[in-house]
Design a protein around this nucleic acid. Sequence first.
DNA 1: CTGAAAGCGCTAACAC
DNA 2: GTGTTAGCGCTTTCAG
Lengths: 344, 344
Amino acid sequence: MTTIRDVAERARVSPSTVSRVMSDSPRISEETKERVRSAIRDLNYHPNVVAQGLVKRTSGSIAIIHSGISEFFENAFFSEVLGGIDSVLRHEDSDLLLSAASNDEIATLERVIRSGRAAGVILLRSRVSDPLIDRVHQLKVPAVLLGRPMDGAANVSYVDNDNVQAAYEATTHLLKLGHREIGFLGGSDELVVTVDRMKGYRNALMDFGLQVDARLCVPSFFLERGGYLGMMRLLALSTRPTAIVASDDILAIGAMRAAVELGYRIPDDIAIVGFNNIGLTDLVNPPLSTIDVQMSELGRAAAAMLLRQIRTPSVGSEHAILPHRLVIRKSCGAKLENSLAEEC
Amino acid sequence: MTTIRDVAERARVSPSTVSRVMSDSPRISEETKERVRSAIRDLNYHPNVVAQGLVKRTSGSIAIIHSGISEFFENAFFSEVLGGIDSVLRHEDSDLLLSAASNDEIATLERVIRSGRAAGVILLRSRVSDPLIDRVHQLKVPAVLLGRPMDGAANVSYVDNDNVQAAYEATTHLLKLGHREIGFLGGSDELVVTVDRMKGYRNALMDFGLQVDARLCVPSFFLERGGYLGMMRLLALSTRPTAIVASDDILAIGAMRAAVELGYRIPDDIAIVGFNNIGLTDLVNPPLSTIDVQMSELGRAAAAMLLRQIRTPSVGSEHAILPHRLVIRKSCGAKLENSLAEEC
DNA sequence: CTGAAAGCGCTAACAC
DNA sequence: GTGTTAGCGCTTTCAG
């Protein structure tokens, strides 16, 4: 292994000079800089970031802590977000640490952060009552939340969409198409994103002078199977819905499978609108109308924000709300078939 | 930050004793062990793995170096493999470093390994001529390849399926159903996996006494769009195929979209068999027949193998060939509709 | 402008 | 059984 001493010897300077050259200190003459740089090149030297991390007491990596293993790896939403995160890190000589929380997310957080593995963390979801977020705040760990913290919760940085408004628009779209019995298929009702989207859904119904029927709101889990099961339940209701707002495309797709299996036609018997705009929406039959939330951009924004938090902790917490837009395809039954999209 | 000294003071021992307790050295009395452990608990102490790594000259993380950003994040094959890798790391106090190679994969490898970030690397694909594999071997970096190295190449550890045989079976299945004009839709022809699957396809044709028509073999890229474009080309041929072997489910699904768009019915006009058995295969219409390659198990095996390579370098290189099986659904037109699967 | 020295948190001889 | 010492590779005062 080539160390800083090897480089120093070859360039006939001291290790500290090499270190200064690497950080491009202005106090070093151009001449020595050149000599050191060529020594670095000759030896194909790569500074040991572990040693650097030890003295600088920071790591170049950022972590993602995930627990719901299948929800994480099987839902395209996360791959897309990951891609976005990755696209900013690749330019920053920073790496992404994917840490699986066996049971206890807080323990995993402490393990990853206090052990110096990562300098900060991206939290993938926000629960209505979220001890993990509290702990992050308490430990003053640089962190960015994907989704918003519950009102009045810790002053944490976050990136989110306006989910209330987005769900309002999706629901209104169905209402305008004439539907009056509209079901809501959500993820876990412990998640803020579910709460927000359900709120938008309810607001829309109420603004149309309709009653909100609690039985039409079915929480589930963010997998295709979750949508399938939730839909089975909705279709069994005596007040069977004619349209569905699904809080995630993968739920919507599961719901479509259930509906088709039971002999319903989409969108004629049941209209569906999803959320996220994953690649799959274009491939299913019929193509799924959905709310585009800019998944990749969510990841990019979160990563960039976290890097800022780490590099200049003084900036304080930041928030970003990314715009969404309703993408109309076939599954909602709107007449405009030329995939005209309403901007939000 | 709590350090080993803090723990030592609280337990009234020396730092080295604390260190020994953590590695459960037999030379320490049960009594002191208990005292030290409770000090660790009281202080919520987490050893700094960066410092550990510095002296042990190894990192607890393993890296995945990926370049084709979209192929990596958009193809469910990789999410599944990632899930498998993750499932072994989560029990090993080891983390996964996802490193994006901007341009130069070799440079990224050196950056990640020589800088001490990761102790070993999982290579996601093997090219017919693969300088990255050569370099890994040359630098003696612990590594496991997903896929096999080209004959006679570096003595690297790997996990793979028998792709020649698997493609042979997929093709034979179509031949037995009566098809004679069978197209092959592959990934980049620089990849060993493409070469192998194409070979199996060819062998099957020849064993049936058929000519191999080079125009029926279309290389593409591992995205839905790749399958779509490749299929367009196949359907335009004067000797239009009546069946397709696609080297990846996502290619198969793109191919199906192209076929349907042009008015062909599947499987009546065109039969299709894919590869991998991603979750999507069950959701498309008709459900896609495919070769199950045990994606998650591939990841698990690769991770376990890499960990062995890192912990006991003396073991030498290992190889594992995982069994595959043909999963018959609707897209191939086989009569057995009760999803009877032939074991390989 | 550059070098010497100290120390980041930890482990591993080497002592006793 | 346990403490002392040295050092992993690097950065950063402090000198000069």
